[in-house]
Structure formats: C-alpha cells, structure tokens
Nucleic acid binder design. Structure first.
Length: 480
RNA sequence: GCACCCAUCGUCUAGUUAGGCCUAGGACACCAGGUUUUCAUCCUGGUAACAGGGGUUCAAAUCCCCUUGGGUGUACCA
C-alpha cells in the first residue's frame, strides 16, 4: 500500500512556521516513500476560521515549494479537502450517529455554564479536571425526549472506564501508556452540529486513505481517543508519529510574542524558501554526513524517520540567518536580482507611502527603507540621548516603554498597529511627564538608528514588534 | 492539581535502536588570529556538554530505577 500523509492546518490567523515544519516532515516522508502529500483544511471552528487564512496557507505552501498532490484548490479523488464542505455533505454526522447507535457515544445536554461550574469545583477539590459524565447514563428514551424537545446538546464519546491504552510511537523508546480513567469523554459533535477536531480528523484520515500521521507532540495526549475512534468506527488505524514542538529560546512552545511565527513574514523580509526549509529540516533531523546546507530534493533523499529526534528544538534565528546567508550568496547575479525585486515587491505597498516624501530619486528608497529590513542597528550615542536628557533618563524612558508596551500587548489592549502604538506611547509620555520632543526622538533613534526617519508610529508598526523591542533592548546597556 | 512526553556544549545535533572504536564529533553563536583600504565573506585556532544519584555489566552517554529539571495536555480550539 502506498504511503499517504497529510497536513491539516486550521485556517485561523497567519500561516504558522510550526505548520511549515510539520508539513516539511510529512512531505519528505511521503516523497521519500514514493507516496502522496495532501493538504486538508480543518475549518470546523466557525468562529475563528477565515477564507483569507485558508488562501494564505496555500500561498505559503507554494512559496515554500511543498507542493501537495491533493488539496482544496487542486482537488483529488478524496475531496472535498475543506472540512466545512464535508460538514455540508453530512459526512461527520453519519459517523457520529453510528457511534451513538453502537452505544459508543451519547448526547450530552450540559450547558457551558454547567461545565464551568463543574471544573471550578474540581479545581477547588484538587481533582482531575474532566467531564464528570453525568449525561452518560441517561436512558435512551429520556435523551430522545430532550432532543425532540429541542434541547441543545453535543455528542460525546463513551470512552472505556478501565484498562490501559498502549501505543508504540516509533520515535520513542517505550510505548506510550495511558490509563483509560484519565481519558475524557471528548465532545465529537458540537451543539451547532459541526464536528470537533477529533471526529473530523479521524474520519477524514480514514476516508482519504491516510497511512501515517506525523504531527506535533501536543496531540500525544489525545492519541487514545483517536485510536479508539478508529477502532469503534471499524477503520484501520493509521500510524501516528509525534514529533517535538518548536520552542522559543526559553523552551516554551514557540509563540509570536517571542519569535516571528508567520511564514509570510520570512517571505516578505526576503528570506529564501530553500533556506527556511533547510533550517527547519535541521531542527529535529540531521544529515547522515553531517552536512548543513542542502535543498529540498536532498532532504527527501536523506529523510529517515529513525533520524528524527523527539525533543522539542529551539528555533534559533541565528542559525537561520547563517543558512540564509549561505543560500543567498550562492545565487547567480541574475537570481539575486530576481530575489531582490521580489522581496521589494512584497512590501512596496506598505513601505513606499512611508518613505515617498523623503525621496528624491528611485535609489533613495534603499537609503530610507533600510530601517525596516536591518537586523542590527548601530547608534550614535549623541543621537540616542536627546538634548535636555541624560543617559539615565534616556535609558529609563526606553526601558519603561518596552515594559509598558509589552504589558499592554499581553493584556490584549494593544495590537501592533500605528494607532494603538501611538495611543500606548502617548499614555506613557503623559504618565511620566516626558516631553515629546525628547521622548519621541530617543524612541526614533533607538528603534531605527537614525534621527531622520518616516513618521514614528507608522515606522514602528512597519519595523514590527519583535524587531523594535529587540533593537531597544540591545541598545539599553550601551547607553552611558 | 492530575495525566503524558522529553533530557549530550548557550543553541541545532552525531553517537543511544544492535553497551566497548567516545581522552564525546560537527555546525550556529561567542572569543582570538589571518586575508580584506573599512565592513561582510572566507581561512585558522579556542572556550564549551553526556542533569544528579543508584543499579545491571569485565565495560554505560548508550540498558533499568529513583530524583531533579523542562515541555505539553487537561475547550462545544485545532
């Protein structure tokens, strides 16, 4: 039987670098086995999924060169490849009904308030937090009566109450063992009639003939639910393989607060897809001859699941930059030229309005726009410390700014847009009684390295939250 | 809280599946030197790790146990 794998992202927000990572591993595995790589969009969360995000995921895959053999926009024998369309076809409902009929699932009428109360009580009592199964043993008649009466309900899986689930994940030394008592009666069908991930993924993997599921470690805990669902539905269980999560430098799960996680950011910033892929491949995997630089074709050639490590690797931008440098300098002048044009194009609509009035010739764009691309900023200390302020005052102002803005972002009170940034910074200025003349100048110089730059708040937005903070924090210890 | 996963230089890793070839190799970063009008590239060299404790064994980074540390999950999100 030929290998079939899939990448199943949820189109909420920007295409994530973690998705690209898992996609790469699946792609390499499939291609190294002569198999197929499939894109399936899991848009069953009606509140959060957007068509723009779906499009961005497909653009992102194409940009990376991870061409899928079947997917939403190219079709295939097992379509549709968007779960929203499959919901309409009644696919999930059918299997949910089957489980209920078999006695492997049941309707649950608990409201979200009921559940919150229940969880709070469990937390207070120091008990495990999971559904207490109060609807599990409702009689068929009673349940049917409530459904007929139009009571809002979900369908939950009726997990085994005893025994253990053991699974030999091939990346791990020992089988992964979990007691059934620790497994929750997971919701399969929501009150709106749409499936949750668990049902949808298992059903679609089966229907699409998926043989191997290479996914992130965050799914490991729900593995018993998935193997169980497969079995109760009479499906052949695909092989599940769980790989380590990408991490921030502090080892927490990678997040956009601490790393650029939007793949399109790398594209717009002028990174080469090959370099990004090369870097991603080196996380968790290694070349048998310990080589560092190699392309997708080579990755497919050397890819070997037994060479995949399980520990979650730290996403190290320094290494990415090193590889990107190697890749870029390998380009012919013609290729470089094309890449430069393209990366300029990606951001031209955004950046040109900012710098246009300061330009005299076309070439001036480079002089003005460097602040948006640079990784390292060099400051003249006499520019950093404005007239009327001393080193301490300057340091304090910059430090306070970063801390305050970070706090606002964390609380969800600040989106990284010019308007929000302006509001945040004006508040800080007022609170501390700092005059814009000095305060804005020191911010401008700290963030851009220059006294002459486009409007402050728009510039900060365009430079990006991560770079702004990074630059200021790099500057702080140098102020004296 | 409860459950599960993981553990070699600061980081990515080789070595672990088949214990000896490991006085633990490579790469990034960092430091020093060389090339370069400068910077970068490039070249040379250096600092730096088997988390701790018990076993098993003639022999353990490699196998087992405990501790510690880190991570994830615990949603009508995926």
């Amino acid at each position: 039987m030929s290998v079939r794998v899939r990448i199943a992202p949820s189109p909420t927000g920007d295409p994530h670098v973690g998705t690209a990572y898992i996609a790469l591993l699946n792609y390499c595995f499939a291609k190294s086995q002569g198999g197929s790589f499939i894109l399936r969009v899991e848009d069953t969360d009606q509140g959060r999924c957007t068509p723009e995000s779906k499009q961005a995921i497909m653009d992102c895959m194409r940009w990376l060169g991870l061409e899928y053999d079947e997917g939403p926009d190219i079709g295939g024998e097992h379509g549709p490849y968007e779960q929203s369309q499959r919901v309409e076809a009644g696919i999930y409902k059918k299997y949910s009904d089957q489980l209920v009929e078999q006695g492997d699932a049941y309707p649950c009428f608990c409201s979200s308030e009921d559940l919150t109360t229940m969880r709070e009580a469990q937390r207070a009592a120091g008990e495990p937090i999971m559904y207490d199964r109060r609807c599990r043993d409702l009689s068929k008649e009673e349940a049917q009566a409530r459904i007929d009466a139009g009571d809002s309900h979900v369908i939950r899986m009726k997990t085994p109450l005893e025994g253990e689930h053991s699974y030999p994940d091939r990346l791990r030394k020992n089988p992964v063992v979990k007691q059934w008592v620790d497994v929750d009666d997971q919701v399969l069908l929501k009150a709106d009639g749409w499936p949750t991930y668990h049902l949808a993924a298992v059903v679609d993997d089966h229907l699409m003939g998926i043989t191997h599921v290479i996914r992130a470690e965050e799914w490991l805990n729900s593995l018993p639910k998935h193997t169980w669902l497969n079995k109760q539905l009479g499906f052949e269980v695909p092989e599940y393989i769980h790989v380590g999560l990408l991490r921030n430098a502090d080892k927490s799960k990678i997040s956009k607060r601490k790393n650029p996680t939007n793949v399109l950011w790398y594209r717009d910033q002028g990174y080469l897809p090959g370099a990004l892929l090369n870097f991603l491949c080196l996380l968790g995997h290694s070349h048998p001859e310990e080589r560092d630089q190699f392309d997708l074709e080579e990755m497919v050639r050397i890819f070997d699941l037994s060479r995949l490590s399980v520990a979650g690797p730290v996403f190290d931008m320094d290494k990415l930059k090193f590889l990107q440098g190697l890749w870029f300098r390998d380009l012919s002048p013609e290729q470089m030229c094309a890449v430069i044009h393209q990366s300029l194009d990606y951001r031209m609509d955004e950046l040109l309005p900012l710098v246009a009035e300061r330009m005299i010739t076309g070439g001036d764009f480079c002089n003005q726009a460097d602040i948006f691309y640079a990784d390292d900023v060099r400051w003249q200390m006499q520019d950093v410390i404005p007239k009327g302020w001393d080193a301490n005052q300057t340091r304090k102002a910059l430090d306070t700014t970063v801390k305050s803005l970070r706090k606002l972002i964390k609380k969800g009170k600040l989106e990284w847009t010019a308007a929000d940034i302006e509001k945040g910074i004006k508040d800080i200025a007022e609170k501390n009684d700092w005059k814009p003349k000095q305060y804005y100048m020191t911010l401008r110089v700290a963030a851009t390295g220059r006294k002459d730059s486009p409007p402050l708040f728009e510039s900060l937005e365009a430079i990006g939250q991560l770079k702004v903070f990074k630059r200021i924090e790099a500057l702080l210890p140098k102020i004296r």
